[in-house]
Write a protein that binds this DNA or RNA. Structure first.
Lengths: 231, 231
DNA sequence: CGCTACTTTGATATTTTTCAATCTTGGTGG
DNA sequence: CCACCAAGATTGAAAAATATCAAAGTAGCG
């Protein structure tokens, strides 16, 4: 069942981090789209290839990245359930997308989706809200990267993942980090070694522990938030 | 007259970097909005203030930024004619926006605009294309910041400004850089001194000259593009 | 003409990158 | 069930780059 996660433009009561689609809208999307599953590490599409579909994530995580001539890799985003990707530029995808975990996607043919959106102003407005949300998310990343200290950047990254990844509400503050250190480095503008050292520093300072490498747990909340704010 | 600059989703012939609005759509926007002028350096709005309007730039340049507890400043975007800003989060602006040059804006009350968009699917689609364009632009910035070398970053920034800033087509390859070195640093994740040194290095290597500090001119195109690609 | 904001340049300190070697973990197959 | 393998992670030491601090220079504007 496709959903769209986003903070809306206008003020709302409560804490609505999700743009709930109406049943009707969900049905319309299901009618237009196809459900597809991808195994971990499999490519969804490559940068520069002709863009035919937009994708909505139902479950799992993917990374969106770009390879550079030097062999380096920039990770433009980590995307989770409720996220949208594949909005092309001039008929081609601008990033490559690869599954991190097993993912379930709704694959929406661009033309059909465009028709649907143009005829359902309310639905299209929700897409507009969603893309705007992703734009703010990209800006947030830029703020993170402007930090000089690797430990601070990683802390902000962990804080970001705290709210993005799972369907809202982690069990016991355990924050899944399904991506590799190298991916995190590509996202934070750090080498993978620096990410590793930053993780070690957070541990040494007693702020965060890492279980099985792919899960973070904030142990000292006060100290952690102090580090977040020290920017 | 409000316009929206963006590269569309689908393939198109020619080089269409602008989402042309129909006369009718422009009229509708003009009807809903108000034309306002801002002097250089004046604030359009501040981060955290209640968001009532979306803004479309008709002429001039603004910077969107966020101040950090440490006193540092992250510039999230430089925006020019054809750009859109002020899309709020939960009723509040997420960035501060200040005029760099004298700017002319169309100020569109959020509610009225939302109504208009929901009733004109084609117009809303153009807004969707535009916001998507800005998202890609933010990602492009992330790619720039992942470069290690300051000179390379500045070169990529200049290349970016080459296509963004003026109404497409610079006179004699003269690229206006109306923002300060400090602003550029805030955008590139560099100190203002590093920006200054990077500019000096580009000059020393015979790639770029800077006229009156706020204009760049690429003198050695081959060398310049080689530097751009060396990443 | 002088102020103010912005920029340049220099020397030092801090930080990260890089290169290299070793270690860990999860999965595979005998 | 265990040993092995390969991808990913950690740690160390040296090199490279930027940040920082400080002082002097420049340009635009009233």
């Amino acid at each position: 069942v496709p959903t769209l996660a986003a903070v809306p433009f206008a003020t709302t009561d409560g804490t609505p981090n999700r743009v709930l689609l109406t049943d009707r809208q969900r049905q319309d999307l299901v009618k237009v789209g196809t459900r597809v599953d991808f195994a971990p590490r499999s490519m969804v599409y490559r940068e520069g290839s002709p863009a035919q579909c937009v994708f909505a994530i139902t479950d799992g995580a993917v990374k969106s990245y770009r390879d550079l001539p030097s062999g380096k890799r920039t990770v433009t985003a980590f995307l989770f359930a409720g996220d949208l990707f594949g909005l092309a530029e001039n008929g081609r995808y601008v990033n490559s997308v690869r599954a991190i975990t097993r993912v379930t996607l709704y694959q929406l043919p661009l033309e059909d989706l465009a028709d649907l959106l143009k005829h359902d102003g309310e639905l299209q407005f929700k897409f507009l809200v969603k893309v705007t949300h992703e734009l703010r998310e990209a800006q947030r990343r830029a703020v993170i990267i402007n930090r000089r200290d690797a430990a601070g950047r990683l802390a902000m990254f962990i804080a970001l993942m705290r709210f993005r990844n799972p369907p809202l509400g982690n069990i016991g503050d355990l924050i899944p980090l399904p991506m590799t250190r190298s991916d995190i480095g590509g996202f934070l503008g750090l080498s993978l070694e620096s990410v590793s050292r930053a993780a070690a520093e957070l541990t040494r300072r007693g702020l965060v522990t890492f279980d099985r490498r792919n899960h973070a747990r904030v142990v000292d909340k006060a100290g952690f938030h102090k580090l977040l704010a020290a920017h």
